[in-house]
């Protein structure tokens, strides 16, 4: 599983002159995150540019988004989740305090992004803070889902849940089910939901609908797979 690879990523990243700036912004986030109990903020689709999934550096994307978002609130106006009766809230909320006050974010357990095909939030954004270029909504990156506490997942315990899988807009692609026979009963199957972070958009629907009292599948920051070490180096650095 690429999960393991990703975990190694943080250690292997090579800090260069320019990325030091980004790093400080990132550090700030971490501290804020500790303070608020959440180290990562899910942004609307296209935040920080129209990167293809395998190319995005989410730290840079976040920094870029923050520098471009003019806090106008237009994306929130058009976000339609409330009208669909499903969610009680709009997927797009706005930060109420802090240095990023007024910027949009998504709290999926309350209302996830339903991945509107027409990308109204992106269209409404007057700058390119939200920008998907020619990319489909399905190629957007708001983060990636992860089973954060497998012990709490009903499906992993052998119960027939798989709600996250059933409701994922990229069912079968972003979440797959891995099968194994239940070792205790020997006559039942366990369907373990496994996220493919290269496909998952981080829309958060799985987090919103997870059947457990506290979601055991959550959207976290997306780290691109460590494919080409040079990609993270700025040109000219040694």
């Amino acid at each position: 599983m690429n999960e393991n690879k990703e975990k190694g990523y943080g250690e292997e990243i090579q800090f260069t002159r320019s990325s030091v700036v980004v790093f400080f912004i990132f550090l700030f986030h971490i501290f804020r995150g500790f303070a608020s109990g959440r180290g990562f903020k899910q942004r609307p689709p296209g935040a920080g540019g129209n990167h293809r999934k395998s190319e995005v550096d989410s730290y840079i994307a976040e920094a870029s988004f923050l520098s471009k978002c003019i806090r106008c609130g237009q994306c929130g106006v058009v976000c339609p989740t409330q009208e669909r009766g499903e969610e009680t809230a709009k997927a797009i909320q706005f930060c109420k305090s802090g240095f990023d006050q007024g910027t949009p974010y998504i709290e999926p357990r309350k209302a996830a992004c339903i991945m509107c095909v027409d990308k109204p939030c992106v269209v409404a954004c007057p700058t390119d803070a939200l920008d998907l270029g020619k990319l489909d909504i399905e190629q957007s990156i708001m983060g990636t889902a992860e089973i954060v506490s497998p012990k709490g997942c009903l499906a992993i315990q052998g119960l027939r849940c798989e709600v996250c899988y059933n409701r994922c807009p990229l069912i079968g692609d972003a979440i797959k089910l891995e099968k194994r026979v239940n070792r205790r009963t020997k006559v039942h199957i366990i369907y373990e939901p496994v996220v493919d972070s290269d496909v998952c958009t981080g829309c958060g629907i799985c987090e919103q609908v997870c059947i457990a009292d506290e979601a055991v599948i959550k959207v976290r920051q997306y780290y691109p797979p460590f494919k080409d070490p040079d990609f993270y180096k700025f040109k000219g650095s040694s």
Binding site: L159, C161, V163
Partner: peptide, 19 residues
């Protein structure tokens, strides 16, 4: 919770039963 002694489901349920 699922009843481990029940021959039908051996302690397992679907989410309707779970809830």
């Amino acid at each position: 919770e699922g009843d481990p002694k029940a021959p039908v489901n051996m302690g397992l349920n679907c989410i309707k039963g779970y809830n």
